[in-house]
Design a binder for these strands. Structure first.
Lengths: 256, 256
DNA sequence: CGCAAAGTTGAGCGTCCTCAAGCAGCGTGG
DNA sequence: CCACGCTGCTTGAGGACGCTCAACTTTGCG
């Protein structure tokens, strides 16, 4: 699907960006803890509980603060002037929210809680002042923005190159990876989004999401332990990755 | 197409993000000039001419510098470990390149010149040091990253909500807007990409791009003044926007 | 001139969307 | 307690948009 080779320039060596390093898991969790500690120690923070469906901020609101997720799951929804709504990001503990407001002076998305969570809000001007004193803080900020950009581009990549089924599989893999990186169990995840939300995020209809999940379940790549079908069991994340890869190379094995 | 309404929360007022402000055009050009001057005055800069097809950096290369486009047109190509290539961004004068390298320590994309251009490279560590002295520089850096994030999300939005024809129209509009913002003529643009590259960027095949351009031309929204069909004349950018909007509301006018 | 690369256009088909029906879970109220 | 309605989910049938494959034209270059 859409394997238009754009260029055939000689390729440099490249670290396998999706292949999970063997252990190294707690690295992300540690980084998150460090960042939260840095914020706590050097900045006035507004802690805020956000319940399911409530927003941290809304598109159009004046930008003054950035927000760091202390717990919970969030989505960002891009709002076009003409009413189109697009889920453009999923965010977990340690992720920052609100970067899109810096340049424009107002937020460009809604940030909405997918369950009850807590965000720490810091005034952007105060953050800049603190960064001047503590370079680590600036480093954390830039790294977070950089990761956000990388993540958005990876979304573009899956959206453009994967079939609907593979996109759903990749979505589950992404969620499971995010859990694992934070030291949480990733063999069973609770989708905190409706099929419609997932479909919107992945650029397909809710029916297609449902069918894809059914197919993945039929192929034993996932299972639904509960009646509710909101919980997804992933016996083998590697197998999910393999499924995505397989869907790229329909028949022939890649020579060379 | 894919108008799954995810939520129906009460909506706050929101500035029309796509509607071009009446004049205000030189604002962006001025901002770019300011940024270039800031860099020039406070940092050691490596100027570099990059010819068509050459890369500023490649995926996997060690990250040490950010790059600002002084002239020319560039694309960034996301390289997946499995060989998938995805054009994830187009970049013009004043845009920064390389943000995705900050967090990972190595670049995640190739940045490739679409024609001969000049980039200014600054070492990231030197940039940080200079930012400590000149807060404006830090402001420019953050604004550029913020805009990058916003832009990526807008790409996701068009990719997920627009038909192929509308996506091509929106692509032309985007390019024309980028030109206008920089004070260049936008009634005629020279596409510096092949149909295959455009298609890759927009998530469709080169044939579909070709057909979409033919249809737009048939509807008088664009014209091909040259034989080569690389130059596109856009008599009325507004009409292009209207075309995109029209494709969203297939039949009924939006009540209320 | 000849060849390769880029582009256009057509025919056929497959994936995914649309529309529709039915089921499951859940809170409400009689 | 169960009927009731609501929302979310699943599954099927049919159709459309865009992909695949193919032939041909145009452009550019040695």
């Amino acid at each position: 699907m859409l394997t238009t080779a754009v260029a055939a320039a000689p390729r440099a060596q490249m670290p396998a960006q999706a292949a999970p390093a063997v252990p190294a898991r707690p690295a992300v969790a540690e980084r998150i803890a460090d960042t939260l500690r840095l914020l706590q120690d050097h900045l006035p923070i507004t802690r805020r509980i956000v319940r399911t469906g409530e927003s941290v901020y809304q598109a159009g609101e004046r930008f003054a603060s950035l927000h760091v997720i202390n717990s919970g799951f969030f989505k960002t929804v891009n709002m076009a002037a003409d009413g189109r709504e697009q889920v453009v990001g999923l965010h977990f503990k340690g992720d920052w929210l609100g970067f899109d407001g810096i340049a424009a002076g107002h937020y460009g998305c809604d940030a909405i809680a997918l369950d009850t969570g807590e965000v720490w809000s810091v005034r952007y001007d105060a953050l800049l002042a603190a960064c001047a004193q503590h370079p680590q803080l600036l480093g954390a900020l830039h790294a977070a923005m950089s990761r956000e950009i990388t993540r958005d581009r990876d979304s573009l990549l899956s959206l453009c190159t994967l079939s609907a089924d593979a996109r759903v599989a990749d979505f589950l893999r992404y969620w499971a990876d995010a859990m694992a990186q934070r030291g949480l169990r990733n063999d069973q995840i609770t989708l905190r989004m409706t099929r419609a939300e997932i479909g919107n995020y992945l650029g397909m209809t809710l029916e297609t999401v449902s069918r894809a999940l059914s197919r993945l379940s039929r192929e034993q790549l996932i299972a639904f332990p509960e009646r509710g079908r909101r919980d997804v069991q992933i016996p083998d994340v590697q197998a999910l990755c393999a499924y995505v890869q397989r869907s790229l190379a329909p028949s022939s094995a890649m020579l060379q």
